[in-house]
Structure formats: structure tokens, C-alpha cells
Amino acid sequence: MDLLLYFWLLLKASLFSTGGLGNLPILHEDLLARGWATDRQFAEALAVGQISPGPSGLWVISLGYLTAGWAGSMLAVIAICLPPLAVLAVERVYRQLQNHVFVEGFIRGLSISVIGVFLVVLVRLLQANGMDGRALAITIGTIGLTLTRRLPVPVILLLAAAFGIILYR
């Protein structure tokens, strides 16, 4: 694995997306195409990112560790810290651009596109994991439980793990 290229792929995904999971579709495409990551590693990293503290965007650090060890996780830290630095430049031009219709529409369209792609990636993760009634039940159950706001997300994931052990072992 070429670590420099690997770093660039992490950086690129973060540069062309907003939010903690916006970089997922781009990384999924780039790393799977080169055989540097598997669907399973993506799923594992996402789960760790949800359970661990901090912004959910830190899932990339977990992916870095799973795919390229300690070096991978450190490169991931750098790759997610650099793009947000652009905020200092964005702040300067924001006042002039905030009423600009093209920019406003562009950002909205970009975010919506990300969601369209994201949905496909989610379905692919589900398929790679083995799509069956049990999996769908867990998916729907998670959505329902989360919407009630009774349980914190890490607890819901632990419950899902318990169900996994019961249903799939």
C-alpha cells in the first residue's frame, strides 16, 4: 500500500464532503477499488465510530487502523483535521456570499447528492453483511428505538450486538 496515496484518498474524501459521514461514499469507492479495504472493515469502523466518544466523523480513524495499522490511524487524524481549516477562509467570504442564489443552491444540491449516494452505500453494506429478515428487523428496530430517544446510541448498538450473537451464532 502506498501510504502517500492512501493519505491523499482520505484527504480528498474529507475535502469534497461536509459532515462526519459525508466522506463515506467517496472513501468506499476509492478504497474498495484498490482492494485496500473491505465492506466488513467499513462496517466495523462505522460501529466503533458510533460507540466511541467525539464526533461520529472519527470513524475514519478506526478505518485507518483496521486498514493500515497505527500509521493509518494517524494519517486519518491529519486528513480529517486539515479540510475544516478552510473555515477561516469561508468565514471571510461568507458575508458576501450568504445571499448568493447559486452558492446557496450549489451547497444544498451537493448535500442532497451525498445523501442519494449514501443510501446506496448503506444498502451495499447491508448486502455484504447478509441481507435477511433478521438484519431488516434489527435495522427497523434500531430506527424505532432511536426515535423514542429513551436509550443512548452506544447502548442501542450493544443491544444489536447481543441480538447478533443470539440470532447468528
Binding site: A47, Q50, L122, L126, I143, L157, G164, I165
Partner: peptide, 17 residues
């Protein structure tokens, strides 16, 4: 591995939300 098979659909649910 079994636990992960349970966690993945849950993560997908959270992603959908």
C-alpha cells in the same frame, strides 16, 4: 463475528435516520 452481524444492520438504521 456474530455480534458484528447484528451491529451492521443497526449502523445502517442509524445512517438512514
Amino acid at each position: 463475528r456474530a455480534a458484528l452481524r447484528g451491529i451492521v444492520p443497526a449502523t445502517v438504521g442509524l445512517g438512514l435516520l
